[in-house]
Simulated assay, not measured.
Amino acid sequence: MRARSGPTLEHRVVAEQLRLARERAGCGLAAVAAALDLSEATVRRIERAETALDAGQVRDLLKYYKHPEADARRIRASLARANEPGWWHRWRDVLPAWQRDVLGIESSAGVIRLWHPALVPDLLRTADYAAAVEAVRHPQAPPAVRARRTEFLRARQERFRERGAVLWGLIPEAALCTCVGSPDVMREQLDALRLATAHPNITLQVMPLTAGPHALTGAPPLELLRLPVPEVPDHAVVGGPGGEATLTHDRDTVSAYRMLMDSACGAAPAAGAELPALYRW
């Protein structure tokens, strides 16, 4: 049984397919709920992937809709794959619920755009830089727990590289001037960023200290996720206090954040420009 976490891309696709199947069958939410002894709210939550998708319920829904059996089998097979443990399952003991929600979508995103107002975004951090951030954010956590969180981040970065997803990061130069860990850690981090810019799927822009206010000035950490399937809209991950974040797929909200990101990137030096020569490190 898959550990309960946020819906994956596959769950959201199945949920959307169920909604479309109901509409094609000409069935209203109330009628479906009455026929299958469910509440109308439950049917609505199933179609929004806001509750665990039960294989029996999905089978009963498709049967009630008289959905073509060949297509119904494909949907059931997709659900079975979605219910398998996520790649992050081995780290579930150190992952908060909000992060499992994000991973279900981020792990399938084709394009990831990142902004952080004060630090190097996590997908671009070295292990030592990430460990230093963990030590500041979670000083009371046992060292073994912090080490596992850093190990998880490295696995997350490796999965991103293996998938060949596109990453576009915007970093304020101030983040590169902030000593996280030690000068040695910062030198290693800057070298890693320079190497990252040579990767064809990674684009990095640095907002200079001399730049004026821009669209993301004062904005929290932001991650925009573009999914490779038409059934699922783009998502935004908006950072909060203590490193926590909120995942949203509200179209107006995501569109507003995308426009802010576009504007800020347009105000930064062109992608591919040399990283600032920070001689202090």
Rank of each mutant, 00 (worst) to 15 (best):
M1Y: 12
A3C: 01
S5K: 14
G6A: 12
L9T: 13
E10V: 08
H11P: 00
R12K: 09
R12M: 13
V13C: 03
V14R: 12
V14C: 15
L18A: 09
L18Y: 06
A21W: 03
A25P: 11
G28M: 11
L29H: 13
A30H: 10
A31Y: 09
A33P: 13
D37P: 00
L38M: 15
A41D: 11
A41C: 04
T42H: 15
I46G: 01
I46D: 00
E47C: 11
T51S: 10
D54H: 13
A55R: 10
G56R: 14
Q57R: 12
Q57P: 01
L62M: 02
L62D: 02
Y64W: 15
K66H: 15
P68Y: 03
A70Q: 14
A70K: 15
A72Q: 10
A72Y: 10
A72E: 02
R73N: 08
R73Q: 15
I75D: 01
S78P: 01
R81Q: 13
A82R: 08
N83M: 13
P85Y: 00
G86H: 09
W87M: 00
W88H: 01
R90V: 09
W91Q: 01
W91A: 03
D93Y: 02
D93M: 00
A97S: 12
W98G: 02
Q99A: 14
Q99T: 07
D101V: 00
I105C: 12
I105D: 09
E106I: 03
I112Q: 07
I112C: 03
I112S: 02
L114Y: 05
L114V: 11
A118I: 04
L123N: 13
L124D: 03
R125E: 07
T126P: 00
Y129S: 00
A131C: 07
V136N: 06
H138K: 11
Q140P: 00
P142H: 04
F152H: 13
L153V: 03
E158N: 10
F160I: 00
G164Q: 12
A165N: 10
V166W: 03
V166D: 08
V166K: 15
L167F: 08
W168L: 05
W168P: 00
A175C: 10
C177M: 14
C179Q: 15
P183M: 07
P183Q: 05
V185L: 05
M186V: 05
M186W: 10
R187Q: 15
E188D: 13
E188W: 05
D191Y: 04
D191E: 14
R194N: 07
L195C: 06
N201K: 14
M207P: 01
P208S: 05
P208C: 07
T210V: 06
A211C: 00
G212Q: 06
L216V: 13
T217Q: 12
G218M: 07
A219I: 07
P220M: 07
L224F: 07
L225T: 04
L227A: 04
P230Q: 12
P230E: 01
P233C: 02
D234G: 02
D234Y: 03
D234I: 01
V238A: 02
G239Q: 10
G242D: 05
G243D: 10
G243K: 05
E244M: 11
A245F: 12
T248P: 14
D250T: 05
R251Q: 13
R258H: 11
R258C: 06
R258N: 12
D262K: 09
D262Y: 10
A264C: 08
A264I: 00
C265P: 04
G266L: 02
A268C: 03
G272N: 04
G272F: 09
A273Q: 12
L275A: 07
R280L: 14
W281E: 08
